[in-house]
């Protein structure tokens, strides 16, 4: 039992990074849910692997390349969608799978073995360093400020798109949406290192969806989602530490378990 409470520094780092990300994820995830963009978030996060591969190939920081690729994937989707190439769900699957597949090939071409590939796919929260913490803290603060600026208008847009466009103008709403996509891409770039390409949207969606059961206002939902996200991180890290499970999947499963409990509590 002594194991349980003797926190190693890497556990502290993991918890800090995870909790900070949960707070940002609550705001971004709520907006993603409001706009019914869950699959969109998933599709662009799959492309993060391509970003990692490009970072390896060119020997530059993968945060930046992930951000650029995520943004590129998002813009590509909007371009194809506006051109009516296919329906949105079809396009999203194509973009997600093509990006993921291309990423896998290029990660191998970049000289990374399959062990590292697994790390990219499922994250490596236990290897978070002190400098990673600073990056996460800085990005989280910047994202929270950005979200605060666009929050009210984006809420109105999600609630009633035409009213938002009539009151604020179409051009301004387009700009705000672009800022939101930027925030989403930045979040994915930072979070992928910690929870991995495949699980990053879980961090965005599950706590927010659980919080929706009990919320009457958007702000209450964000607060509750942040709390649930943080609980999932703490619970997930604890479970993985105790039972020697992979950490990121443990966090996601804990989060889903909380969601299930939330559903039961709501419908009892």
């Amino acid at each position: 039992m002594t194991d349980l409470f003797s926190f190693e520094p890497f556990i502290v780092n993991a918890l800090l990074a995870g909790v900070m990300l949960s707070i940002v994820a609550a705001g971004i995830g709520s907006l993603v849910l409001y706009q019914r963009l869950s699959f969109f978030g998933d599709a662009i996060s799959h492309n993060a692997l391509l970003g990692i591969a490009l970072g390896l190939l060119f020997g530059i920081g993968s945060d930046f390349t992930i951000f650029m690729v995520a943004l590129g994937a998002a813009l590509l989707f909007f371009f194809l969608y506006e051109k009516k190439v296919a329906k949105s769900d079809t396009l999203l699957v194509i973009i997600a799978q093509a990006g993921l597949a291309l990423g896998m090939i290029m990660v191998a071409a970049g000289g990374a073995g399959s062990g590292r590939l697994v790390g990219f796919l499922f994250g490596d929260i236990l290897s978070v360093t002190k400098s990673d913490i600073y990056v996460v803290a800085g990005c989280s603060a910047a994202l929270i400020i950005l979200l605060k600026i666009i929050w009210n208008k984006m809420l109105l847009f999600a609630f009633d798109r035409e009213t938002a466009e009539a009151e604020e103008g179409r051009r301004k709403m387009l700009l705000l949406n672009l800022l939101f996509i930027l925030a989403l891409a930045a979040f994915i770039a930072v979070a992928v290192k910690i929870v991995g390409v495949l699980l990053v949207t879980a961090l965005l969606i599950i706590p927010a969806a659980t919080a929706r059961f009990f919320s009457r206002t958007p702000e209450a939902m964000v607060a509750l989602a942040a709390l649930l996200g943080a609980l999932s991180v703490v619970g997930g890290v604890f479970v993985s530490w105790q039972f020697d499970f992979a950490t990121a999947p443990s966090i996601v499963v804990t989060s889903a378990f909380l969601g299930f409990c939330g559903y039961l509590l709501k419908n009892r």
């Binding site: 849910l33 409001y34 019914r36 009210n152 809420l155 109105l156 999600a158 609630f159 009633d160 035409e162 009213t163 009539a166 009151e167 929706r212 919320s215 009457r216 206002t217 958007p218 209450a220 939902m221």
Partner: peptide, 24 residues
């Protein structure tokens, strides 16, 4: 301009009270 469209305000994915709506 205040615009009230035919289908306005029915996205129930967004939790909303009347007061919060007015503060939008």
């Amino acid at each position: 301009i205040g615009y009230l469209s035919q289908g306005s305000g029915r996205n129930d994915a967004v939790p909303m009270t009347v007061k919060r709506l007015l503060l939008l």
